[in-house]
Design a protein around this nucleic acid. Structure first.
Lengths: 202, 202, 202, 202
DNA sequence: TATGAATGAGAATTCATTCAT
DNA sequence: TATGAATGAATTCTCATTCAT
């Protein structure tokens, strides 16, 4: 019998190990040799787990979007007011800002590969992470869930491009203030999927 | 003297012609030969105008950020209420969505090159486009100008990655509603740099 | 003891199963993994039976040349006139044309490997199949045996390269006509090794 | 203006220079790097003239089949008896035996590539060299032209595989004897396209 | 015996750049 | 200025072979 290896587990391990470098350097600027070396395996072994370079990007994004949702949701405690939930999300993103920036960059790489001849389909399931996941975890409507996601993706992107330009914390707090003002003005009920959450505020 | 004018004008013409392909395919996936062919010149000629591939990216982003600001500002009429100004900006971005998506993508490429050994400095002036330009054109504070910019960059990015996910118009209108609600609640004065613009309320 | 019988029998089975693919694709274009997969064994097992890829080619040709001769000779009935014997050979080759084409191709591969550093010796015994075997089975002189063989190898080769060019049957019949005309003209006796076979033609 | 090079002439020069090695080592066993080195150019330059490795094989065979016919025909003098013409052909092949062996081997390579996915069409025009060209140059019928060609291809192949087995000269003379016997017996007229050639003997 | 994970040298091909014309 | 032939290091991917289990 051959060496016993949990193929899938090892694949994920490799993906996570190289996630950061891959995103920062960019799909096209990273070489299979470098990836292999960095992971401490031979190129042959790398190809044993990933048939093509593309498949690494594909699997990375898939893995990321899954961990993404679960991680964010886990950071939210039950039975807390809406503002706290939103702030919890915001803090979660701030803490993992680099990681979210990685996802933004890999998404661009993915988009570009997708448009190539022989490219692959966009990972539809990643879309749920953008918006629906947020909505679910906060109790907001899907539209507002996307609103939230869009802003924070924009924030992550902006700070990636211009690190010295703005403060994450300040813009995030501004967002929360603006957002909460709107929700209160409009009346919470309309914007919440689940009645009773954070209501009754005079 | 006329030579120099021609030279620069021709450079810009080349940059604009290939801008879209460059952004969509990505810095690393576009070859100098392809650029040359697409522009109808030889590689030798291309190198005559741009000493390296990097310099094309550099000049492209520079050109983009300049046209960006001027175009947006030009679309705003004087003496209009704040909401109209904001909507004018939003509409401008919607109409040129593809162009803004290109800038987002090229910015990522630029960021990545910047981090490389021998990479170049980030174009500082591009930052003004993000935020300060908006603030200036609308009369908002710099902080709110960035707030605006961040959201719309997020929106452009999101729709780039997930074209079928959300509507530009709907999310933009939602933003305007949220934003205006906040401005009205907080009192316009605090958020405007220039008194007297869009005032007279009450 | 029974192990060894199994071992060799299994080896031959593997060789025969993959003979055709090997010849058609070519020694260098076939991979050990493909061979293994096609045979339903692991690469490890394949290496258990054949220490190197070269050894597969070697054993294949050896096996082929043996079966070749025996098969052809078996197809010839005793005490038949020379023309019938020759035609029997011709028919045998026509029926197994693909098989003979395989041998032609593998022989080229073999020749090329032989010329390499570390290459192997030509299987001398295969030569007997070309010519001597035919001579023996038909009662012709060695020289005419080779003459026969040469023509039919040429025919197989030509049809391999240009399948739509000529008919096997027509050219074979032409050969027999030409050949028999010559034998009759020259006098059979001179061209036959064994007197008495197909004689009495006073 | 760029360096002035006669593209096609240089291509042919490269093809002829490497013809022999290519055939002997085999399509799959020769590397582009080796070809380039052997030709004294860089791999980049090699690719400048041949977009793929396949295209080298393709062009080589095409070039060969053309030179083949013209060379053979040129060696035949006008107004000579048929037997002399045939012998002239035979001598021509004997002198260039190595070269014909090369073509046989390359043809096999070609056939194998042709059968691959993405393979190319067989060079139809090469078929004319086999048979029709001979017929034309000797005045024989097409069928007998192919008969001739088939035998000599077989002879070349056989001597390639088993160099010590038979003599080219002996088998060639045997062929001529057999062939001429048949032609005389059948009556020349039937086998000649052009009346009057080499007839009326005795 | 049998398996298939692991290896790493080497394959075909690409590409930014140079430079003779 | 303009051309495109030439370069060669670097890229993705392959594959015969080994070996721990």
């Amino acid at each position: 019998m051959p060496k016993i290896v949990d193929h899938d587990a090892y694949r994920n391990e490799l993906l996570q190990k190289y996630f950061d470098d891959f995103a920062h350097r960019g799909y096209s600027d990273v070489t299979m040799r470098e990836i292999a070396e960095s992971l401490g395996v031979s190129t042959g072994t790398l190809y044993h787990y990933f048939p093509t370079k593309k498949s690494i990007l594909e699997n990375m994004l898939q893995l990321a979007s899954r961990r993404d949702i679960s991680g964010a949701i886990a950071s939210i405690k039950e039975d807390t007011p809406l503002e706290d939930r939103i702030r919890a999300f915001s803090n979660y993103i701030m803490e993992k800002e680099q990681w979210f920036a990685d996802i933004v960059m890999l998404t661009i790489d993915y988009y570009r590969q997708q448009n190539k001849e022989g490219g692959f389909e966009m990972v539809k399931e990643a879309d749920s992470y953008y918006g629906n996941g947020v909505a679910e975890a906060t109790g907001l409507s899907a539209e507002l869930g996307f609103f939230f996601t869009i802003f924070f993706n924009g924030l992550v992107f902006h700070r990636l491009a211009f690190p010295d330009s703005i403060s994450f914390h300040d813009q995030a707090e501004l967002f929360i203030k603006v957002f909460m003002t709107y929700l209160r003005a409009e009346g919470m009920e309309k914007n919440l999927k689940n009645e009773g959450v954070d209501s009754g505020k005079k």
